[in-house]
Design a protein around this nucleic acid. Structure first.
Length: 577
RNA sequence: GCCCCUGUAGCUUAGCCGGAUAAAGCAUGGGAUUUCUAAUCCCAGGACCGCAGGUUCGAAUCCUGCCAGGGGCGCCA
């Protein structure tokens, strides 16, 4: 399958490349010819700048090359209305309205509005969210969860088999402290009311005590050893902590419309850790240093990394390597994608390098994002300025609800609640997904919950307006399926919409390739803007039947793309707002 | 000290595989509704694209140096 033919950029590029090759056989074989959207609408729809670069290479005036290219395009193919040379040798292309309309209707009618199935037959594991057991999720967890889930949806839509794996932090020294603390400080009522919050409180209290009381610290260590040795009582407690935590995480995930294929915590790989050391030994990769076992990565220009601590315990690098082996064996993924914050960049570089040395074939990708902070600085449990994820979602829904109460007082109560959820959650997700993951995010309520302008609700609103049009159309023109109508371009705002629609499949591909949901979010905002402009200036239902039927077809296409696109971002599209 | 990332309008950002007059949202000022949802639309003002060099016909985009912010750099994950 040639995915480039899904886009008009692809079609045009293919055509222009053919012309270049036929016209200029002397051009270097590796010369790349590209067609891109114009930088300014006055120039047409697309532009090709490569006559300029080629002029230099062939030592000819670029203008002359452009002349030859344009001459060779005559007569123009059906897709083009006009070709012009501008300035020093820009070739500006304008699509014909007939072809544009035809192509848009063909592409958007394809399954998933034409998203190419480039991942067919391939598997990708996406490791995201990964909160710690016995700690409530706070706004620091939101980015991995939301960005990871968007990537999850992208890859599924592209035809990949996706394994969404929640690699919970469910093992480690903290469990000795929690188990001991559980026996010392438990408030049973609090545990019943809010289990994870209580577990966290217990942990903090117990941790405090370890700093003041040496024998208490020893007792905690002892509990940890017992747990690791499989002591029935401690194991049961630990399992309870994990179960309680997952239960609570799932409540949040459900609210966010997120699901995982696996909840495989670190503990799952426990008994595979000695095997990792064996493999490293077999590859002659480990040596002892200051009592620890390390892998040196001098050739890769990286600091050495520890795979077994001085006390004989393994660390997260070992677990991560074991996890790769396990996933490789079980799922045979083409790629494993990790979505974490920026602080772990070095760790991933090191552990990827180790995997490569071990001959692991799977492509490993670390998608990192900037930390979230508060205007006054980082947030921390100690400063008590941590915002719980659920409080954020509550506030989001509350704000959406206020507007709904004002604008839709007649709406039934249950509908209001659902709508407040769709809009509030959509706003939170969009606020994150519309930015490049690498940017730092300074959290403010107003930014996280924007409901106007470039925001989730703006896109939902555009979509809902189309739904409303369609409902009315069904009354005016009963029995007519808008998708059976033919759209033809009648004005400039329609044209712009058509051009935008045609970009959708390649945008999805690009967003997934770059691991940047913001590319899709940005596109959808642009599409919505183009639609709002069209909607303002071009009556649909009030036009003559012929225009009305044509325009409603265009509206449906916009709605299909918005719905498809928003669903890839995990954002709901309510019928009415 | 070394490494990674970021620096574009008052604020939040897009553009960064080099291209024509740097694009949006918020905020500010003005306008649009007896007309398909005003969470909307239209118009205006607002930018030494961190600074300095370099490469190029052409640089926000590529290279070098510097400055500022964030993060990381052996037994936490």
């Amino acid at each position: 399958m040639n995915e480039s033919l899904f886009t008009c950029e692809g079609c045009l590029t293919e055509y222009v490349v053919t012309i270049f090759k036929a016209t200029l056989p002397d051009a270097p074989a590796d010369f790349v010819v590209r067609v891109s959207p114009v930088t300014d609408r006055r120039f047409g729809d697309f532009q090709c700048n490569d006559a300029l670069a080629l002029g230099k290479q062939l030592k000819q005036p670029p203008r002359k090359i452009a002349d030859q290219i344009v001459a060779a395009m005559s007569p123009l193919p059906p897709m083009l209305e006009r070709v012009e040379i501008a300035g020093p040798g820009f070739i500006n292309l304008t699509l014909s309205n007939a072809w544009l309309a035809e192509q848009a209707q063909r592409v958007i009618a394809l399954p998933q509005c034409g998203i190419p199935q480039v991942g067919e037959g391939r598997t990708v594991v996406i490791d995201y969210s990964s909160p710690n057991v016995a700690k409530p999720m706070h706004i620091g967890h939101i980015r991995s969860t939301i960005i990871g889930n968007a990537l999850d949806r992208f890859f599924r839509a592209l035809g990949y088999r996706v394994i969404a794996d929640n690699h919970l932090g469910d093992w480690g020294t903290q469990f000795g402290i929690i188990i001991k603390g559980f026996r010392e400080f438990l408030d049973a009522d609090a545990l019943a009311a809010s289990p994870v919050e209580e577990l966290e409180r217990i942990y903090i209290a117990s941790y405090q005590r370890t700093k003041e009381d040496e024998t208490y610290l020893d007792a905690c260590r002892n509990e940890l050893v017992k747990l690791q040795q499989g002591d029935a009582e401690n194991l049961a407690l630990w399992k309870r902590f994990v179960a309680l935590s997952i239960q609570e995480f799932e409540r949040v995930y459900k609210r966010l419309g997120i699901g995982f294929d696996l909840y495989r915590g670190e503990s799952f790989y426990n008994d595979q850790l000695p095997g990792v050391i064996e493999k490293l030994r077999a590859h002659n990769m480990v040596e002892e240093s200051e009592g620890a076992l390390v892998v040196k990565l001098d050739d890769e220009g990286l600091p050495l990394c520890i795979v077994r601590k001085r006390d004989g315990a393994f660390n997260y690098t070992t677990t991560d390597i074991a996890t790769v082996f396990s996933r490789e064996q079980e799922f045979h993924p083409a790629r494993i994608i990790y979505v974490t914050d920026e602080r772990q960049q070095l760790h991933f570089k090191q552990f990827f390098a180790v995997c490569q040395k071990l001959g692991i074939a799977t492509t490993l990708e670390h998608v990192w994002f900037g930390l979230m902070r508060l205007p006054e600085g980082t947030f921390s449990t100690r400063q008590g300025n941590v915002i719980k994820l659920e409080s954020l979602l509550d506030e989001a829904e509350r704000r959406a609800r206020d507007i709904i109460d004002a604008s839709n007082p007649d709406m039934p109560e249950n509908e209001k609640a659902t709508l407040a959820r769709d809009i509030g959650i959509g706003a939170v997700k969009y606020a994150d997904l519309s930015h490049d993951p690498k940017n730092l995010i300074t959290f403010t309520w107003d930014r996280a919950l924007a409901l106007e302008g470039n925001s989730g609700p703006y896109l939902q609103y555009a979509c809902a307006r189309i739904s409303s049009l369609l409902a009315k159309y069904a009354e005016i023109a009963p029995g007519r399926d808008p998708l059976q109508n033919k759209w033809r371009v009648t004005n400039e705002s329609e044209r712009l919409l058509g051009l935008e629609l045609l970009r959708f499949p390649s945008i999805v591909l690009r967003a997934a390739d770059a691991y940047k949901p913001s590319i899709l979010a940005d596109y959808l905002f642009g599409l919505s803007q183009a639609y709002s402009t069209f909607y303002q200036s071009s009556p649909v239902l009030k036009s003559e039947p012929e225009i009305r039927d044509s325009r409603i077809r265009l509206c449906v296409m916009v709605m299909l793309v918005l719905k498809q696109g928003l669903s890839l971002l995990g954002i709901a599209t309510p019928e009415r707002i």
